[in-house]
Design a protein around this nucleic acid. Structure first.
Lengths: 344, 344
DNA sequence: TTGAAAGCGCTAACAA
DNA sequence: TTGTTAGCGCTTTCAA
């Protein structure tokens, strides 16, 4: 066990220890240019025994290249964003690029601060959730001079690239599916909306889809914070007590939907006969519930991968710099809670 | 909408635009030293209209200070680490320090690579999960010359600081609780162990605690990957089919425990009368299940906060640099699945 | 294949 | 209160 060094090691130290110029040491450590096998070995050995770790700060300043990709998401605590990050990781793992994550807690001003912090490191790209940003954030993205990918949502105008699904369409499609199964008295439960634009758009899509059939949502309720599963239980009870005639409940995410499902099963209510249910996200976590909740797969992994691929490709030499707009098509899985027609 | 600049702006540009020296511009932008209100205003205005974002790379190189804290965890996809990160975030939010996350997927060599990458940015501290690392990782942590906090686990020897709980003790305590409630034929289900040292230590603690009463674990099973809830169902069925006499099942995490619980309820098995259950972590997510699963709270948020506080304090001027070893005491919540004694 | 010189954009230290 | 000088540790460029 050696003492802690007072000063981190530099190239100069490796140069001195190996008897090779700093420049050549640098070349060896980066596998650049032609270096003889002999000096190569000397350098590597010296670096190893000293325990040298290169200083990327100096390196990046000199080369004007930073192998960081800023990734900005609203939250890590629900199941959706970790999976997006996994997709990003998967793709960037095979490149020199490294993702750096920032969290906004669904707050515009925090998003602004986080982006500013990240841009000050001069990353090689930005992946950011959503299309709704403050003016300052928009301006920063616009002027950053690096590829930007706005992810998750495609209902709006991106600054540069865009990968996601249409949440309005997801709401519309769910409305169609619900109606087709013969449900008509619909309740909606979700997160408090001003903060979550994608949930809002799904809600609007649902409303519009039902309106086409002359149907209005009969009840709605929104929550903030707390255990989603427990909230789903509570809200479902409250809503059904107040609106006993409802025959379908659409939830803005799978967790509260699962809470609702467990509540209905506890109460002995016939699902999907008396009441149908659907959530949103396609959270794998929930496989294993007594019944499979109907849901829309949000293509999270795929979105992460596609976004990372855009950043990767844009950073390649001679890359096509034209913006890519990718709209993925989510599929509805009917599970065991959206099948009334089959019982007829 | 302005054009994308070919070259990012520099202090020099702000200096030119404001007619103030680079140095003074720098002072204004960092709120350092005395600057007259007049020049301050001039500078801020120029920076604003140009849309200048400082270059931290150059700044950090010059000042030899990097306000980054490296945070290295095995995974983002189970509920436990996001909550640790939340705790870290909470504390660092009020400081100039910024967390940067890295993920190891429970792989030693990946941990090594990620740490190397992060150290090359010369962060002001490292927070890393677990006490078991490769020799190279140990050496890097040892020689980094910055505060290091190893978190989650306290059964071992840290390089520097340590914050966590004793998983051996958690296993022992659970054994005691199980025995006290009159259970005696115990099965264990968990993650594949070589990769998860903390689960292994809980298992060892449990084994030891039971051994004191002359009891041996009768069945055990391990899983990898897949939806934990579904795995919990499957494994529980398999184990009970093969060992119908078991009267208690201890799971290495709450999700598979919840899967087991749902399975038993489906089968109409009396919980906790015929079979008792316990998980681990104290995952808030699961509130809302039909019965509350017994569990041990892993103090995740608190661990994150304490670790961040150590890094913060160590980076303060004139800070006490002596290593801190903090062992938190987890509490068992009995829920509705560890109460056989009450039925007697 | 190797080395020397210059400079990346900023800030510490000092001078005015 | 403001400005000047030097240099952080590396890489680019050019010369040997």
């Amino acid at each position: 066990m050696t003492d802690r060094p007072a000063r981190p090691l530099t190239l100069r130290d490796v140069s001195a220890a190996s008897g090779v110029s700093e420049m050549t040491v640098s070349r060896v450590l980066r596998n650049r240019g032609d270096v003889s096998e002999a000096t190569r070995k000397k350098v590597l050995e010296a670096a190893q025994t000293l325990g040298y770790v290169p200083n990327q700060i100096a390196g990046s300043l000199a080369s004007q290249h930073v192998n960081l990709v800023a990734v900005i998401v609203p939250s890590l605590s629900n199941m959706v964003f970790p999976e997006v990050l996994t997709g990003i990781n998967q793709v960037l793992e095979d490149t020199p690029l490294q993702p750096v994550f920032g969290v906004t807690d669904y707050m515009r001003d925090k998003e602004e601060r986080v982006l500013y912090e990240m841009l000050s490191w001069r990353p090689s790209g930005v992946i950011i959730a959503g299309l709704e940003h403050s003016d300052a954030t928009q301006a920063m993205l616009q002027n950053a001079g690096i590829p930007v990918v706005e992810i998750m949502d495609t209902d709006g105008n991106p600054v540069d690239n865009m990968v996601g699904i249409s949440h309005r369409q997801a709401g519309l499609d769910m409305a169609k599916a619900i109606l087709k199964q013969g449900y008509s008295r619909i309740g909606f439960m979700g997160t408090s909306m001003p903060r979550d634009h994608r949930a809002r758009k799904r809600f609007e899509g649902l409303t519009e889809g039902l309106a086409k059939a002359g149907i209005e949502i009969e009840a709605r309720d929104f929550y903030e914070g707390g255990s989603a599963l427990a909230k789903g239980r509570e809200m479902t009870k409250t809503m059904l007590d107040a609106n006993p005639d409802l025959d379908f409940l659409y939830y803005s995410n799978d967790m509260i939907g699962a809470g609702g499902l467990l509540y209905l099963l506890d109460e002995g209510i016939d699902v999907p006969g008396q009441i149908g249910l659907a959530g949103f996200n396609g959270v794998e976590l929930l496989q294993g519930l007594p019944r499979q909740l109907a849901t829309t797969d949000a293509c999270r992994l795929e979105i992460g991968r596609a976004a990372a691929e855009i950043i990767r490709d844009r950073n390649a030499e001679g890359a096509d710099q034209s913006p890519k707009h990718i709209t993925l098509t989510p599929t509805i899985s009917y599970g065991d809670t959206l099948r009334r027609a089959l019982r007829a």
